[in-house]
Amino acid sequence: MNTQVQEVFEKYPQASRDNLIPILQDIQEKEGFISQESIIEIGRFLNLATSKIFGVATFYNQFRFQPVGKYHVQVCRGTACHVLGSATVLEELEKTIKTKAGQTSKDGMFSIEVVACIGACGLAPVICVNGNFHAKVSKESIRKIIENYRNQQ
């Protein structure tokens, strides 16, 4: 078994199915995403069907099933951003990097995460790439932003 997953399990000596979500969170914290192997290991650890674990994990937006890309793009879909057109921004972003929200591009360069509110409503619509904020993005500017990151490599 993966030692990082093992370390997580050691934190829960009397684990039951109640601990499923904290365990998933800890594993994502350590590994950056929830791998299929981890789900199978959690199933053995908690004596829980993997279908149920996958069901719970996919219910919540916070869990990822692929490793994040070199550039992790968080798109704010909070109210202020929504009013100022974040849906169009997200759509354009998905088109530009040919990847759906929650997934990682095939070349491993970009991954998209939709977040509820980053707390930067004054900058709406806002995105955050590896911790760097980009304010007032539009359908046009998002392409340039992505292009710049792509050229940086």
Partner: peptide, 28 residues
């Protein structure tokens, strides 16, 4: 007592499927 299938995803994206939605032949 098999639990081969469960709900996957949420809201309008909900479906019923097997683990990793990988198909019945990989499931229990």
């Amino acid at each position: 007592g098999v639990s081969a299938i469960d709900f996957i995803n949420r809201g309008s994206k909900s479906i019923i499927g097997t683990t990793f939605n990988a198909g019945l032949n990989t499931s229990s």
